[in-house]
Amino acid sequence: MNTAMHVLPYLVAVYVFLTGCYGLATSRNLIHAVGCLAVCQSATYVLLLAVGYRDGATAPVFSDIEPGSRPVVDPVVQALTLTDIVVGATVTALLLALVLQIAKRHGTVDPDELRELRG
């Protein structure tokens, strides 16, 4: 069982990323596409945190345990993930604002119809 465990988190991250990309590519509604982009972003968080994990370790936060008393996981990847989640949310808001502008100017949020309008 544990040989599968060695690679399972990375495979789940790859699967979620590819699913998000599939949704992004075949979306017929721009708001749905932004949701799929959020799924792609969460795949990168899963990969980052899986890389930093250590068996039997705990979080490197020493407010309630003695430093050095227990093995800890890698804090650097957690710092990356933490800031990226919040910044990702504001970038999603910016994308949704763009979708609103498209809906206002072209009256549709379907990417295929947008292509015909320009032709």
Binding site: L49, A50, A59, Q78, A79
Partner: peptide, 8 residues
């Protein structure tokens, strides 16, 4: 949380 990343 299970991957010991409470902040994230």
């Amino acid at each position: 949380t299970v991957l010991q990343a409470p902040d994230a």
